[in-house]
Design a protein around this nucleic acid. Structure first.
Lengths: 348, 348
DNA sequence: GTGAAAGCGCTAACAG
DNA sequence: CTGTTAGCGCTTTCAC
């Protein structure tokens, strides 16, 4: 059951492979007649184009890579959907990878994508790339979620993580909570880092003092949020509110609170980050800080595509021009507070 | 910035490309010395293997394709995660595609995957493949969610959709609800079809009569569930319970019920299908019929891999043996009722 | 242990 | 409009 190739078609159609190639690709310079003949024979023989061979000779795969830390997290689902849509509209294929918050795996995936000759990579790193682990990678790479410019020039699309934390903690304080705890996400992640930073800063500014144990890292999952909250609520000194590094953690947090017999909002406030679709459900009504994730995705694709474009035009360009290339661009989007029931002290 | 190839390495190391290839791939027949030399030079020159070229000559890509109808649906997220893990453990790469419930797009994706020479495809079709639209595809294909054997031999991994519906509707009736409505999913989908079928059958068996308007199709989304429920609750004759074709629909359904001022469970019962992670949250406590989706994924990969294996061994095999190949295999998994609060008439 | 040579299936000048 | 030719970068016999 050997695959049929354009050679087989050429033989049968009594033309050259070049002509077959042209006809099959709809390129100019083929008579109506041969065009039809070739296509007819091709479909008769059940020909299926071999993209691998085409990619090799054309030296392009028309493919982008995307790496996210957790494919099943609805936040990243939204990102994937947005990116998928955008890349598709530009005629690019997308290779989706899941790093599972594992830096080693992430590195492997990066290499693998490059070996497969993707034209560019959209990377949502599991920890800041400022350690320089990708500095030697020459291909176009767009990094999500970093909001600092580090040594190597690279394009970023991110949200203001520090401000995100400020919005959340200030809201908690505004609502009359006085002992907020912080449930971080993956310890290494930049977003979690900045959110904790702002948590500490805001508390200090407002002269609010809480035990160190109120701030703890973990995983960005419901389970992790549940476990950590349950533990904190066991202690003698109990927090009166939780700032969770994402909505999943907050969901787990709420479960633990409910189980312990506290009333959410009235007794203990909860606020998350992301504004995942499930947070808006009337049974949940989770207060949160919304991240414009779809927008990040769209922007990311656009910037990456520009990056690729530049790469291709590299020859006809002065060094001067290169300086203000998009390689150094940082797009920083704004988070937005979405107050809901879980931070409402009294039912009005 | 031309890529460095094994030719460059060979030249620099003063060996042949064959030797470089062997060394880089860790194949036997290379002296310790040359092995080291080649690797050293390779990393010095920043060599990056070109998988496209390797795939072409080896005629294998070590890649599987996966097509799901909705990448952001948590049900499919779970499937993807399970499949990803399994394929990775076998050293296969995975190409994930989103058909967006669009048959045309699905077909395109199938073709595209084949052109990229994936070795096999895991397909969760947006509508039954019994229309024969893939009968001419010769590559190994594993179909999820079909539970009937159709004309063409093909391997299936599915859940008993009919039984799923029976479990749900019987549970509703058992709990004392007497006017269940059915909120279907994507009209064309087999799962929705069977679930509606069983809905009708069970009602008939139990001599329960409901208006035709109680059964309606839509999309497998929160939004769609919300809209349809809101509409049904406007009518004079109101259902006292909802059997939703999946949990997302049920979530939207619950929102609408709450908004209208009904109490979930006490006034109106709701049951979904899938047992998505969010359904278990204490604020939700959605009764549902659990589908062993991870298991489906694992089984799917295993069967597909066997299929591929067979394909390769095809030469040394009699026709007799082919008859009982896995090509015809159907794996049918069991759904399981998970009763929770949303179908509890009275608070005990 | 190593090299020479023949492709994998397709595209892209360059001629005609 | 069509054919010839020369690869794309790598693997793999088959000799040596």
């Amino acid at each position: 059951m050997k695959d049929v190739t354009i050679i087989d078609i050429a033989r049968k159609a009594r033309v050259s492979t070049a002509t077959v190639s042209r006809a099959l690709n709809g390129l100019p310079g083929v008579s109506e007649q041969t065009y039809k003949k070739v296509h007819k024979i091709a479909s008769e023989m059940g020909y299926r184009r071999n993209d691998v061979a085409a990619s090799l000779v054309k030296r392009q795969t028309n493919t982008l890579g995307l790496i996210v830390p957790a494919i099943s997290n609805p936040y990243f689902s939204s990102l994937m959907v947005a990116i998928k849509k955008r890349t598709l509209s530009f005629g690019y294929k997308l290779l989706i990878c899941n790093s599972d918050w594992d830096v080693e795996l992430e590195l492997k995936l990066m290499k693998s994508l490059l070996e497969r000759r993707v034209e560019g990579i959209l990377l949502y790193p599991c920890k800041p790339v400022s350690d320089g682990r990708y500095d030697s990678f020459e291909s176009p790479i767009l990094v999500f979620g970093n909001n600092e410019k580090d040594g190597f020039c690279r394009a970023y699309v991110s949200v203001d993580n520090y401000k995100t934390g400020q919005l959340a903690v200030n809201h908690l304080l505004d609502q009359g909570y006085i002992k907020p705890a912080f449930l971080g996400g993956n310890v290494a992640s930049l977003s979690s880092f900045y959110r904790e930073q702002s948590y500490r800063d805001v508390l200090k500014q407002c002269h609010v003092d809480v035990p160190d144990s109120f701030s703890c890292g973990g995983k960005y999952s419901i389970q992790s949020g549940y476990e950590r909250t349950a533990q904190l609520l066991e202690q003698s000194d109990v927090p009166d509110s939780f700032f969770c590094a994402n909505d999943l953690i907050a969901l787990g947090c709420m479960t633990a609170i409910t189980e312990k017999g506290f009333r959410i909002g009235a007794d203990i406030g909860v606020i998350g980050v992301d504004n995942v679709i499930y947070s808006a459900l009337p049974q949940i009504e989770l207060s949160t800080v919304a991240i414009p994730i779809e927008l990040m995705g769209l922007n990311g694709v656009d910037v990456l595509l520009k990056l690729i474009q530049e790469e291709n035009d590299e020859n006809d360009k002065t060094k001067q021009e290169k300086e203000r290339s998009v390689r150094d661009s940082i797009i920083l989007l704004e988070p937005e507070l979405v107050p809901r029931k879980t931070t409402q002290r009294a039912v009005l």
